[in-house]
Simulated scan of single mutants.
Amino acid sequence: MAAGSLGVTGYESPSELEGDATLKAKVEEIRLRAGELMGLGDVRATTVPKMTLVAPPRDGGVISTRTFIPHRVHTSIGVLGAVSVATAVLVEGSVAAGVACGVACGAAGGAGARTAPGDTVRIEHPTGSADRRDQQIKRRSDAARSVPRHRPRGLGRAFHLGAGGHP
């Protein structure tokens, strides 16, 4: 989810984000609806889906992240989370691709992700960054697709819930 669309920059500390009751309520509302739309049912008592806010990078990466699992904002990003975000960066038209900065665009940010074979996708998180090479992304995202119970993830689609809880 684009951090700006939720009224934050995406550069806040985990404690700042966790202290924002309005933001947490919005993220939880989206998470619950996303769980239903993904066929996971009522996800109130689970840790999935994990929700990641994305923003243009600030420290030489391709994208900046803040991840809620499910209600705590983690200080880093896990391997699968990094692969999911890197995959979303490479999906044309995704929210992540729209805010990402490609390897060649320097510090401009928000220029749209452009990578070439062998490029590293550096994902910034609150305490540093995680690097994923395009071969790792393809191999891990292909493996995720091969498991029938898995749902497509990381495409950056957000659902606005209007009155009555319907998108």
Rank of each mutant, 00 (worst) to 15 (best):
V85L: 03
S141H: 10
K138M: 04
K26H: 05
G10S: 09
I123G: 02
V91P: 02
R58W: 02
K138S: 04
T115D: 13
E92H: 07
V89C: 09
A100T: 00
D59E: 13
E28N: 15
Q135S: 15
G156Y: 01
V62Y: 00
P56A: 04
G78I: 00
G61W: 01
G7C: 08
T120A: 07
G81W: 02
S13Q: 15
T67N: 07
R149M: 14
G164D: 06
G35N: 13
A97C: 14
E124R: 13
S141L: 01
D134L: 13
G61T: 07
D59M: 05
G19D: 01
P14Q: 09
V8H: 11
G35E: 02
P148G: 07
V73N: 00
R132Q: 12
S146H: 12
S146A: 08
V48L: 08
A113E: 10
G19K: 11
L161K: 09
S13M: 09
A82Q: 00
G39K: 05
G162I: 03
T52R: 00
A104D: 02
A158F: 10
R145G: 15
G7A: 14
Q135T: 12
T115G: 13
G110A: 14
P117A: 09
R66N: 07
G102I: 08
V48Q: 05
Q135L: 15
R140S: 11
S146N: 10
K24V: 11
